[in-house]
Amino acid sequence: MLTLNLTPIFKARGIEKPYTFLVKAGLTPHSTNHILGNKTRVYRLDHIELLCDALNCEPNDLLSWTPEKGKQYPDNYPLKNLQQNENNENILETLTKLTYKELQQKTKDFNTNDK
């Protein structure tokens, strides 16, 4: 089953009030409630685009796939790429655990790869 998995992105971006953030980004309160409550089964492409724009991500970052119980999938099944890992550690927590030199190196690597 495919679902939207926004919580890790909100945590990574330091968004403490997702409802307010999404309404300010342009979603209606009604749509925001449905999206945050995982009550929506059909997503409008303009909503996906708005989410990607507001959260600076791509659609695959928003989606999570959970395999159907009892069903076997081949190792190369394309949706397996959308399985969420079990690591729930906050990215900001991870960054604070790095030494200053490690953080400088990561920043340097990031800036080098960005060019």
Rank of each mutant, 00 (worst) to 15 (best):
Y73T: 08
R44Q: 13
W65F: 15
L95G: 00
P8Q: 02
N90Y: 03
L6N: 09
C57G: 00
Q104Y: 11
F10R: 01
F21S: 03
D109C: 06
K71M: 11
C57K: 00
D53M: 08
L22N: 08
V23H: 06
T96G: 00
L36T: 09
C52H: 04
K97T: 05
E86P: 05
N33T: 14
E58I: 11
L79E: 13
S64V: 07
L92W: 13
N81H: 14
K24M: 13
T99M: 02
L36G: 11
K115P: 00
P74R: 00
W65Y: 11
H34P: 02
A12W: 03
F10V: 01
L62Q: 05
Q83N: 08
P8C: 00
S64A: 15
L50D: 04
D109H: 07
L82T: 03
N85Y: 04
N38Y: 07
Q84P: 13
N113K: 14
A54T: 06
T3Y: 10
T20H: 06
Y43I: 14
P74E: 00
E58C: 08
K106T: 10
L27R: 07
D46S: 13
S31C: 03
L62W: 03
N87V: 12
E68S: 15
S64K: 03
P18Y: 00
N111R: 13
F21D: 00
L92E: 12
L55C: 06
L45E: 10
Y100H: 05
K24P: 03
